[in-house]
Design a protein around this nucleic acid. Structure first.
Lengths: 211, 211, 211, 211
DNA sequence: GATGAATGAGTCTTCATTCAT
DNA sequence: GATGAATGAAGACTCATTCAT
């Protein structure tokens, strides 16, 4: 909603690219640990091993760092959703992949997922100041999948695809939140796999006994 | 030079009680509109129609206001969960009431629910600085319901009650978030009722077609 | 929400060192003029010709500035006391040097001595929050001198070295206080020299006529 | 130096007089414990067992309370000095009484003496804003005694009465300060009596051995 | 590119004091 | 006389951001 800003400079040199990357990595860690408001630019710079003034050679301001993390990571994310949608798969399989994807991203990059959950998906301020539409593509992608599946008879006719999307997203996100805040502790790959199965099962068949 | 901490006396007079309530109401509105960080104590005071210094007669600091909203409202919330659990009802009925409750609270007090969602349930800082256990009782209450229902054959044996709790909470919360951020707009009571049915249906039976 | 405390990095550059020094000088003047409580950080910054925010790059807070003045100046002070003690001198000569030292420090740096007297030696708050032991080394140094002198027969046997130390300190300090508050006005070096003689004489021989 | 203010009201009733006295007692205790700046009017009122608003029925402001303590207590003090001066006594005896008086006041009312030392005698602010002359009468009284004694041959000719006054006051005050801050701990009446003897001896005969 | 010294807007918080009741 | 609710001036402190070097 605010005017989109261009990068201050488009750094081309190897060093530049590397430094920019270091800042994003550092910011991801610091934001995850302290939250966006609790993170100071100086903290990020320290974590990146650079002078804090240098941060402003790569980003306009603190918000811009978060926006970059969001744009560059959420980009892949949405891309994957589209990929899942393009691939000819059963709805069950699509959902399995989505659920696996979320859990997997969390397992690989818990800090990143923490930020996505704490600072972006839910952040009033972030949603206010950025194009909420960018976030919603992910929702749209899932909604479309459900719509397609419903048309193909793989999803119950009565289901409202939009609402179902929120339910799916919410379910996945809360489980990840459990991981993030430590109330759901999983140590082994098997434990995570079991959670994926559970989620998938719940989303597809609900709580009640089958037949 | 050291900070002198002492609890504000709990004011007893009628006027006092009313002022305190006014502050909480004002804070609820301002927090919902601007977020905790974006809200200034002066904004709250202005909204309440009092001098900002007076806020400090009733609360130690800004945090304390949020904590009070949390404690006093979340209390009722948990209480309702326990009530639902105590009443002899089918699991389906219990779930229906829960879902209805959430939607209803949102409809009646959208600001309050907004805060619950944006500032409390998800707030890194809040969870860090307050007893997370208080939040978790709500989770525990639902988990127990599922456990009971599973024992009674009302819930599929394979279900992990803890994980299912996160799924239920997440689903409900994300739908409310949709209301809060306006991406799910519902204007009529019927629209809300339909959402309740949808959520209930999804949680109980999942996305796949019934038989 | 919790305060994040970390020591300011000790700045290394020339400029930095100079700025820090400027702040201490400015603070010395402002504290002397207005007292610690009456001095605002903004006043100090203005006196130093810098933005007030910069003060916080060098010191944690207002207290810390006073503590730095204390630590860095009182250090020299105590050092001198030890030097006097190490040098082989008659007790009379030692006392002469001490008295001269106090008067001299006042003459050279009246602001500094004013702070020492008004804010540090007597400040309830300061003594409360800092290691009173650091202050007391000065007392100990003098006490030891008296003890040595008594053993050597240069001081009356009946004298309690600790109490005598308080008497000496008190006498000197009150005279300096007279200078500070202006009730004892001395304009010429000779006037100060006469005071030194008087003090020395009083401390060594008392008020009563010599034989 | 500031305009002298009249008491808000001259309370006449028994109750009034008693309440006023209670406030002064409470303030003395609180000022001694927390210092003038650290003491809140509310603390004083609480200590006195009254509502804090009532304090302003008896005193104009916080300063006024300290001023009242000063005026009413220091009054007796000065009065005693004059009495000592009027009574036909040897100089030695006069000094003995003074020293005894100071120690005795501390023993009876340590809080009061603490305030006198910490907040009044040395307080830059207090001296700035009140008639310093009131404080100085005490000095003058002693100076006169010395002058008289010198004329009578009881004090060495060379002595400068004014400077000697500062030495005497300073000596006594520093010993009391030792009591106040606890670095000089005296438990028995005998210990205090010994200190009086020491001080007297030091002031009259100095540190050096008597013949 | 890199540094970190310097700036100052923005807020929270304290607490003496007033005054309606 | 007594209460304590209400006011708001005053100031400490943080930290994102700029910019001279």
């Amino acid at each position: 909603m605010s005017a989109q800003q261009r990068p201050r400079l488009s750094p081309r040199s190897k060093r530049s690219v590397r430094t920019r990357e270091r800042i994003l990595e550092a910011a991801t860690e610091v934001f995850a640990r302290a939250g966006f408001h609790g993170a100071r630019v100086a903290d990020i710079a320290e974590q990146a091993g650079i002078a804090y003034g240098l941060v402003y050679h790569y980003f306009h301001n603190k918000d811009d760092i978060l926006a970059a993390i969001f744009a560059e990571r959420w980009g892949q994310y949405v891309e994957y959703l589209h990929e899942v949608r393009r691939t000819p798969l059963s709805f069950t399989e699509r959902m399995r992949r989505l659920v696996h994807f979320w859990v997997e991203v969390y397992r690989r990059e818990p800090d990143l997922m923490t930020i996505m959950i704490n600072e972006i998906t839910r952040s009033y301020e972030f949603l206010e100041s950025h194009d909420i539409g960018t976030v919603l593509v992910a929702f749209d992608a899932i909604e479309e999948m459900i719509r397609d599946a419903r048309a193909a008879g793989e999803v119950e006719d009565d289901i409202d695809p939009q609402l179902a999307t929120y339910v799916i997203f919410g379910a996945a996100e809360m489980v990840l939140t459990g991981y993030v805040i430590g109330t759901l502790q999983r140590r082994s790959p098997e434990a995570f796999a079991r959670d994926e199965e559970q989620m998938l099962d719940l989303l597809l068949h609900g709580l009640t006994p089958r037949a």
